[in-house]
Design a binder for these strands. Structure first.
Lengths: 205, 205
DNA sequence: TATTATATACAAACATGAATGTATGTAAAC
DNA sequence: GTTTACATACATTCATGTTTGTATATAATA
């Protein structure tokens, strides 16, 4: 078989991305060769070079497919200003993210790659900056939610929504990092939801 | 010059480690070659191979020099059961770590390498496990300190020392990650101390 | 103490493998 | 007939590990 239909080609492209995810996860980005990826996708390097300029481009394609949607999703669950308890809303947003990571293997693997199997240098360094930006966007959403909680008199103590939001953001960053590193699930994954609840309960009146 | 005195040789060894830190930071561990490191240390690869088996061994030497001491230091500041306010003790322990990272360039660079410039695969994977272990050791120390705080009736609310310790640990993990990524210091570094204070104040009665 | 032997601390050269990118070939889709 | 979607072959670079050479520090010996 040689020349495929457009659909076939798109499937090939996707299978290369999927293969890259497996290979990156197993060998780390830098030690993964295009030959590894091609073999895993059951094509030759020719196909890989046809669809992608180089390994970096595959990496970015992989990232865009699952990482960005997760950010958007968090944004969404936080944005809605329904008449729910705002603290519960934050809690749900965090739990939802963890839940999504739990059930979505591709997303989980991609996250693991991005956090522990790649080096943020040169062309990857910009990714770090993007992560920081996404983070401050999410922190802003937290802050708004905490402000709503404050105005509804749901908060214990008299802490500023801004400080609370930063604290929650750092907590969740830490949780995600540990969640990813805890591959056997014995330390964090099994109790992630409880940790989130406890974190939010610290703030409840 | 060829054969040096034992002291000279030790200086050479150290300069190779220092060179590796610079090179790792600039190019990432995987893209750093022994030639790069040798050049930075102003020796040849012959010297590098004399002192180290390979790049991995240099990495571990680098890590042991600054990473382990930092863990020990945290352990120490937390272990003492003086009659200080236990919450302040935790706060000081965290601030002290941040302060150390601020003033100790080598430590800061090494931390940055370990967090964003290396891939945790194969021989490095064990490092991840060690990190997790160190973390739970520190979490235990937090928990003991929170128990002391509770018995002295310093805590707001009725949260368990265990939950508080985990929350603090995750907060601090997140903070360190962001602190490292925030290389220009505009988002986290400048207010790390305030963030820590705010985190602890959430717990104060 | 002077001489000799040996191990040390590298430098320099070499040999090898592996990854990359490119160029070319080709059969089927359009 | 032309372009597409690859496979195959080729050229080049580059990093690694090893081997060899060598001047000197240091230990052994006389």
């Amino acid at each position: 078989m040689v020349r495929k239909t457009k659909l076939d080609a798109e499937l090939t492209r996707q299978s290369i991305i999927d293969a890259a995810r497996e290979v990156f996860l197993a060998r780390g980005v830098s030690r993964s060769t295009l030959e590894h990826i091609a073999a895993q996708a059951e094509v030759t390097r020719g196909a890989v070079y046809w669809h992608f300029k180089n390994k970096t481009e595959i990496f970015h394609a992989l990232r865009d497919q699952v990482f960005l949607p997760l950010i958007d999703r968090m944004d969404d669950t936080l944005a809605v200003d329904n008449n729910d308890d705002s603290l519960t809303q934050i809690e749900h947003s965090l739990c939802d993210t963890v839940h999504e990571l739990n059930k979505n293997i591709k997303m989980r693997q991609t996250y693991e790659i991005m956090m522990t199997k790649c080096e943020y240098i040169d062309e990857f360094a910009t990714v770090l900056q993007q992560i920081l930006n996404n983070c401050s966007s999410i922190t802003d959403k937290f802050e708004l939610a905490y402000e709503r909680a404050k105005s509804k008199n749901l908060l214990a103590g008299s802490h500023s929504p801004h400080a609370l939001a930063l604290d929650t953001h750092l907590f969740f960053s830490g949780l995600l990092h540990m969640w990813v590193k805890d591959t056997d699930g014995s330390k964090f994954r099994f109790q992630a939801t409880e940790l989130i609840k406890a974190h939010i309960n610290l703030r409840r009146k």
